[in-house]
Computed example of a mutant assay.
Amino acid sequence: MRRNPFDELEEMIDRIGRQVEEGMIGGNTGFPVPGSVAVDVADTGGEFVVTADLPGYDTDDIDLTLTDGTLRLEATQEEEAEYEEGTYIRRERKGKSASRRIRLPEPVEEEEVSASYTNGVLTVRLPKVSEDDDSKRIDIE
């Protein structure tokens, strides 16, 4: 029996949609989204480590927030108004901005989050919420 060509088209559209969505939330196979930041998210067991490439930015240009299990990274570099020593013959380096939202798979200790920025690489450490040892096992009768 012959397959319906519309079924193949629908499968392809679904696959592309999943790949784009995975790219937006930090999957491995997603397409790069314009203006987004390339990130790696590692699970070390006790914490998540997010590493992002942000060359050319200063720490004052980067804004990090953590809300409801989503890490939001925004970086904005303002365009310089004029060249201090003369006029431009060619101008290709303009202000730029980039952003990324990363949904974390588990809750983290928000008060323990730390970030560092060295040589254009941002590293954010997000310790996982530890399970309480005070929990009580409930037997089912």
Score class of each variant (00 low, 15 high):
residue 13 I to Q: 14
residue 95 G to L: 01
residue 125 R to K: 15
residue 115 A to F: 06
residue 115 A to V: 08
residue 40 D to L: 11
residue 33 V to C: 01
residue 139 D to Y: 11
residue 114 S to E: 14
residue 82 E to P: 01
residue 56 G to K: 02
residue 71 L to M: 10
residue 2 R to N: 09
residue 30 G to C: 08
residue 125 R to M: 04
residue 133 D to S: 14
residue 98 A to W: 01
residue 90 R to W: 06
residue 69 G to M: 07
residue 134 D to L: 07
residue 95 G to W: 01
residue 98 A to Q: 10
residue 107 P to L: 03
residue 5 P to R: 11
residue 104 L to Q: 05
residue 5 P to V: 11
residue 8 E to R: 09
residue 75 A to T: 05
residue 141 E to D: 15
residue 59 T to W: 12
residue 55 P to S: 07
residue 64 L to E: 09
residue 136 K to G: 03
residue 29 T to L: 12
residue 68 D to G: 10
residue 91 R to K: 13
residue 10 E to P: 00
residue 49 V to I: 10
residue 28 N to L: 08
residue 124 V to G: 05
residue 49 V to K: 09
residue 130 S to F: 00
residue 102 I to D: 09
residue 135 S to T: 13
residue 38 A to T: 13
residue 96 K to I: 15
residue 33 V to D: 08
residue 121 V to H: 09
residue 86 G to Y: 03
residue 12 M to N: 14
residue 41 V to M: 14
residue 119 N to Y: 04
residue 140 I to P: 00
residue 97 S to W: 06
residue 85 E to F: 11
residue 102 I to G: 06
residue 92 E to S: 14
residue 7 D to W: 13
residue 87 T to C: 00
residue 48 F to H: 06
residue 70 T to Y: 02
residue 37 V to G: 08
residue 120 G to F: 04
residue 49 V to E: 07
residue 115 A to E: 15
residue 127 P to R: 10
residue 34 P to D: 07
residue 44 T to K: 04
residue 22 E to C: 00
residue 104 L to N: 05
residue 54 L to N: 03
residue 95 G to Y: 01
residue 78 E to H: 00
residue 42 A to E: 14
residue 53 D to F: 01
residue 85 E to I: 04
residue 2 R to V: 12
residue 139 D to H: 08
residue 67 T to S: 14
residue 100 R to D: 04
residue 47 E to Y: 02
residue 131 E to C: 00
residue 11 E to S: 12
residue 52 A to G: 03
residue 25 I to Q: 08
residue 73 L to R: 01
residue 79 E to S: 07
residue 70 T to V: 15
residue 6 F to S: 11
residue 24 M to C: 02
residue 62 I to Y: 04
residue 96 K to T: 14
residue 54 L to D: 07
residue 12 M to Q: 13
residue 57 Y to F: 15
residue 105 P to L: 04
residue 76 T to V: 15
residue 36 S to Y: 03
residue 34 P to E: 10
residue 86 G to W: 00
residue 81 A to D: 08
residue 127 P to N: 01
residue 23 G to Q: 05
residue 66 L to P: 07
